[in-house]
Design a binder for these strands. Structure first.
Length: 642
DNA sequence: ATAGGGTTAG
């Protein structure tokens, strides 16, 4: 049953995703937060203090489970076996004390790999260790999952999660939080909610206050305000402490839906729950938005004054939220003043007032005022305040410039990315490509597309279609065809994209090329070459009286297929005879075993009905964060229905 | 010792 080590390694390599582009999305909070404490110990002490503040009693259900586990079955009447002997009961995650000796060494080794940004190696090493005599702890696994999440490598994350689940590693609350966030980040709120529900009902551990923050924030970002409200209600019902941040998310969600009343209602609710005083300034921005929505400008500006009231807890991000409220509601000058003040107060590492978000808000503000030069200026100045732009903030500025006829400025900004160590993504190239077409620079447009492919990014069908369409429109048929050839194996082309190319070739009198595509379609199962499609091809061939060429080609194909089949049968027959005579076809047997081990070994959970199917390796295989939203949504709906 | 505290952009 056991696989040889060599075989196992090969298998690991197959499972591992190939190395892709590296896109770092460091949460801006990590660095400054570390810096704001004199030592890591102090930071840890502060975290513990905060944790204590918001700690709540565990729900009864979990307590019962705990008791059952520790002193099984105090009731002599009951015949059921002790809790821990029932394999269908949830297992408890490992305690932190498990992280010692070799397992601690392993942990540190993997953390080092993460710090070196070698996530492929970190994930591979984690998988490898699962079946070694030194299992990684859940803490180690969480660290890898989190690193993958930070870089939006969702498919790799889910694949690793599935792997460890199948291997029987018990997730803790952090693992669950990471999974919720993953699904929410890649726009699958329903899947996230399913997991959340399962977690609440079945997991032997409690949600943390952070769990609610993650889920509420993610639902709001997916415009599921009602669902988010449900979560808040659950939080209340379970007796969790009132969390201004959760209220802020919800208020923002209503503000985005232009429901000012709901925003104010939530604020009143919060105020009531906190005994009439909201010290945390984190809700000020969303509250102002609520007032602005209701046309209550005076109230909004009164609210703004609270920013400067002594005792109001104003963080860098609370400030940004206020900046945004001002800038988007006709108070741009006021936001400039506030920003100025923030900049002056900003004194890292002692006091952090501005961050990447503040700059992005200001960039948007300037652009909305048509002051693009100043937008670029303020964007470039952020380095002076220890803020580093990321791909998204670059894309934001580049898009604003592109959409306002400033392609040259946009390209200049794009040109600054490499020097700053920020990688363009599919969106960046798509933007530049589209704009170049608009500006009658088709060759440059094609150049951006090519660059995107060459740098290992994966354009989706929509971008590809815009490319070939743009090239054909200016008569660059050869170029379009060469991009078709380049992408046909890399993209899941649909019938429309095949027919588009065939039509173009047919109109250029290149029917042989059309037939060549048919030939390929007959080999490949990606798209079904059905009657309708055949009719389409016939109609094109008919123009030059070559209608019968299609039938000929198809017959020839059938003949070749039949031949190949016969050969295969012959080979199988021969193999059977050899096995009969005691000869083992090792490669074939090992091949089968490998497939089997991925799907069935160490998966007792999979048979249990109560367990949500863990994500498959192929799930989201193409949804690695950086694709265009439209494609992501398409895939998401595909997967949800499938 | 593993998440997390908030903003913004498609």
């Amino acid at each position: 049953m056991a696989l040889s080590k060599a075989t196992f390694l090969t298998q690991l390599k197959t499972i591992a995703q190939p190395h892709r582009h590296i896109r770092i999305r460091q949460p801006s909070s990590l660095f400054p937060r570390f810096l704001s404490f004199a030592s890591p110990e102090e930071a840890a002490a502060e975290r513990r203090r905060r944790k204590r503040q918001i700690r709540i009693e565990p729900p009864l259900s979990a307590l019962n489970r705990n008791n059952q586990q520790q002193s099984p079955n105090p009731n002599p009447k009951s015949q059921s076996p002790p809790y821990y002997l029932n394999p269908s009961n949830p297992k408890f995650p490992e305690h932190a004390s498990a992280l010692t000796g070799n397992r601690l060494n392993l942990h540190n080794h993997i953390l080092t790999l993460i710090r070196q940004n070698d996530l492929d190696e970190a994930a591979l090493y984690t998988r490898h260790s699962i079946y070694s005599n030194c299992r990684p702890t859940i803490f180690t696994i969480n660290a890898v999952l989190y690193a993958l999440l930070r870089q939006s490598r969702y498919s790799d994350l889910l694949s690793l999660h599935r792997f460890i689940t199948q291997a029987g590693v018990v997730p803790n609350v952090i693992t669950h939080n990471l999974i919720f966030q993953t699904y929410l980040d890649c726009r699958k709120p329903d899947t996230a909610l399913e997991h959340f529900k399962q977690f609440i009902n079945d997991a032997p551990v409690n949600p943390s206050p952070t769990t609610f923050r993650i889920v509420v924030k993610g639902l709001i970002d997916n415009n599921k305000v009602d669902r988010a409200m449900d979560i808040k209600d659950q939080m209340d019902a379970k007796g969790y402490a009132t969390d201004p941040l959760v209220y802020h998310y919800l208020m923002l969600g209503y503000a985005r839906n232009s429901d000012g009343d709901a925003v104010l209602r939530l604020y009143e609710d919060l105020k009531g729950k906190l005994g009439g005083v909201v010290e945390d300034g984190v809700v000020l921005g969303s509250l102002m938005k609520g007032y602005f929505l209701k046309g209550m400008e005076n109230e909004a500006m009164e609210c703004y004054q609270e920013v400067f009231v002594e005792g109001k807890k104003m963080s860098d991000i609370a400030y940004s939220s206020v900046l945004d409220a001002l800038a988007k509601n006709g108070k741009f000058d006021e936001s400039l003043k506030l920003f100025d003040r923030m900049i002056k107060e900003h004194n890292p590492p002692a006091k952090l007032v501005v961050n990447l978000g503040s700059f992005n808000v200001m960039v948007d503000g300037y652009c909305a005022e048509g002051r693009f030069k100043e937008a670029i200026q303020v964007f470039r100045s952020m380095g002076e305040y220890r803020c580093r732009p990321d791909t998204l903030s670059f894309n934001n500025l580049i898009e604003q410039l592109c959409n306002n006829g400033m392609i040259l400025e946009a390209e200049e900004v794009y040109g600054e990315m490499e020097g700053k160590g920020v990688n363009p993504d599919e969106y960046t190239y798509g933007l530049l490509m589209d704009t170049c077409f608009k500006e009658s620079r088709p060759d440059d447009a094609a150049g951006y597309f090519r660059k995107m492919v060459e740098s290992g990014l994966r354009p989706n069908l929509a971008v590809y279609s815009r490319l070939v369409d743009g090239l054909v429109k200016v008569g660059k048929i050869d170029d379009a065809k060469s991009f078709f050839d380049l992408m046909v194996k890399k993209l899941k082309m649909d019938v429309a994209s095949y027919q588009f190319m065939m039509k173009v070739l047919s109109e250029a009198g290149r029917l042989d090329d059309v037939l060549q595509i048919v030939d390929m379609l007959l080999d490949d199962n990606g798209v079904e070459f059905d009657e309708e499609f055949q009719e389409f091809v016939k109609a094109e061939l008919r123009k030059e009286g070559r209608e019968e060429d299609l039938a000929k080609l198809m017959e020839e194909k059938d003949r070749l297929k039949a031949e190949a089949k016969a050969k295969e049968a012959e080979a199988a027959e021969a193999a059977k005879k050899r096995i009969g005579s005691g000869f083992l076809l090792t490669s074939k047997l090992f091949g089968n075993k490998e497939t089997e081990s991925e799907s069935t070994v160490a998966t007792p959970a999979e048979s249990s009905e109560s367990t949500i199917a863990t994500p498959t390796v192929s799930e989201l295989a193409e949804a690695d964060g950086s694709d265009e939203g439209e494609a992501k949504n398409d895939r998401a709906s595909e997967q949800l229905t499938g």
